[in-house]
């Protein structure tokens, strides 16, 4: 059973339905106790970083999320939810994030190295390039996924990047460290590949999953 954290931000419905289509049981909740018992948690999110952190702090969800991650159960942030996993964001002034992953979230400059301007938000389909082996990327080919965002984590400045996409800069697209994962794009809106990636995440929540094997292998 996968819990989708409801904190008043984001497209929860589409994420829930995508999981349903995969045949995975999921629920949307803001109830700490229910969320704690889930086999995996998803933190979606659309909107502003500061508003999201304020809501997580006010609802006591920041603490709950930290405790949950400590248990070793899989945790996935999507879009803004991924950005929140990092230490800080420069959106609307500097705001602290959940600090589950090292790094900071910065804005696309809108001007490339040659001084030419480019469009922000980064909106549309962009191709992933895989950087590291991960259970999330197992059995998946590099393909296009759907992005919509104005802020990003610089893939060149981070060692938790599993896959990246290029949009003037190298954008961290899939990130992960131990049981904490994030996707900057919307897997629930990314057609076949998005569903494969979500499927891989949900596999991690199954007991004795390939992820356990994967981690045992990488630890040995």
């Amino acid at each position: 059973m996968i819990g989708i954290i409801d904190y008043g931000m984001g497209n929860l419905f589409s994420v829930e339905k995508a999981l349903e289509r995969l045949g995975v049981e999921a629920f949307i909740s803001d109830d700490h106790e229910r969320l704690r018992q889930a086999d995996g948690l998803i933190l979606p999110g659309v909107g502003a970083f500061k508003d999201a952190m304020d809501l997580l702090n006010e609802n006591g969800l920041t603490k709950m999320i930290h405790e949950y991650v400590q248990t070793g159960k899989p945790f996935l942030g999507i879009c803004l939810g991924m950005q929140l996993l990092f230490e800080s964001s420069e959106e609307n002034g500097l705001t602290n994030g959940l600090s589950l992953l090292p790094g900071k979230v910065i804005r696309f400059s809108g001007v490339d190295r040659k001084g030419e301007s480019y469009k922000v938000p980064h909106m549309g389909w962009n191709k992933l390039r895989f950087d590291q082996d991960s259970p999330l990327l197992q059995g998946v080919d590099e393909d296009y996924v759907y992005f919509v965002h104005s802020f990003y984590v610089d893939a060149d400045q981070s060692d938790v990047v599993l896959a990246e996409a290029n949009y003037d800069v190298n954008v961290a697209a899939v990130v992960g460290k131990e049981n904490v994962f994030g996707m900057q794009f919307h897997p629930e809106k990314s057609s076949v590949m998005g569903m494969q990636l979500l499927r891989n995440f949900t596999k991690l929540t199954e007991k004795g999953s390939t992820a356990d094997e994967f981690y045992n292998l990488s630890r040995n």
């Binding site: 339905k17 289509r21 809106k189 990314s190 057609s191 998005g194 569903m195």
Partner: peptide
């Protein structure tokens, strides 16, 4: 909207 979002992974 609900029906489309339920059935399809397309923006």
């Amino acid at each position: 909207v609900k029906a489309v979002a339920s059935e399809l992974a397309i923006p």
